[in-house]
Simulated scan of single mutants.
Amino acid sequence: MLGFSEPLNAKLSRATVTDPTGQRFDGQASGVAEIRVPLSTNALGVYEVQWTTVSVADGHTLHGSFDFGVGVIPTGASEGTVRASPGPLDLAISLARAAEYTALLLAVGMLLLQRMARGRAELAWVRPRVRIPIAVALLSGIAVVLGEALVAAPGPSVSAVWSYLSTGLPGFARLARLALETLALAAAIWGAPWAWAFVAASVAVLAAAGHAAAIRPAWWGITVDGVHLLAAGVWVGGILALSTLRPPGGWRSPSGRGLVSRFSPVALVAFALTVGFGAVQAFLELGGIRPLVSTSYGWALLAKVALVGTMVPLSIRAWRRRPLLRTEAVVAVLVIGAAALLAAYPLPPGRLEAAENA
Rank of each mutant, 00 (worst) to 15 (best):
P247C: 10
G233C: 02
S202Y: 07
W194D: 15
A232E: 03
L206T: 11
A232V: 04
G171D: 15
L242C: 05
A241R: 09
L229W: 05
A173V: 13
G171F: 12
R216Y: 14
G191A: 02
A213E: 09
V199I: 08
R216C: 07
G168F: 10
G237S: 01
G191S: 02
T244E: 12
Y164D: 01
L175D: 02
A187E: 06
G191Q: 05
G250D: 14
G249C: 09
F172H: 08
G237I: 06
H228A: 07
L245N: 04
G237V: 01
S255H: 10
G237P: 05
G168A: 06
D225E: 15
G237N: 03
G210S: 13
A188N: 04
A201G: 10
A213S: 14
A209C: 13
T182H: 01
G237K: 12
R257D: 09
V205S: 12
A232Q: 12
A184G: 06
V224F: 14
P254K: 15
A204W: 06
T244L: 14
R174M: 07
L180M: 11
I215H: 10
L242Q: 06
L230C: 14
V224K: 09
G168I: 01
W235T: 04
A213D: 00
A179Q: 09
S163T: 03
S202M: 00
A204L: 13
P170A: 13
A195S: 07
S253A: 08
A173T: 14
G238N: 00
I222F: 10
S255I: 12
S163R: 00
G210P: 03
G256M: 13
A192K: 14
G226I: 14
S255N: 04
F198T: 02
W190S: 11
A213C: 09
A197M: 15
L206H: 15
V203S: 02
T182L: 13
H228R: 11
L169Q: 13
I189P: 00
W194K: 06
G233L: 05
G250V: 04
A188S: 12
W194M: 11
R216M: 14
A232K: 08
R174T: 09
L229T: 04
E181P: 07
P254R: 13
L245M: 01
S166C: 03
A241Y: 10
L206Q: 10
A213T: 08
R216H: 15
S166V: 03
S163M: 13
G249I: 06
R216L: 13
I215L: 09
A200Y: 05
L185Q: 07
G210Q: 04
L169F: 11
R174K: 12
G210V: 12
A188R: 13
W190H: 14
S243C: 08
A214L: 05
V203E: 04
G249L: 05
P170L: 14
A204G: 12
A192E: 00
V227E: 00
L175W: 05
F198S: 00
I239E: 01
L185P: 02
S202F: 03
W251R: 05
R257G: 10
W220T: 15
S243T: 02
A241T: 08
L169A: 06
A231M: 01
S243W: 03
V203H: 11
L180E: 02
G238Q: 09
V234G: 04
G226W: 08
H228Y: 08
I239S: 05
A204R: 03
A200D: 01
R216K: 10
A231T: 04
A204H: 09
A213L: 09
S253I: 07
A187V: 11
F198Y: 06
I222Q: 04
L183K: 04
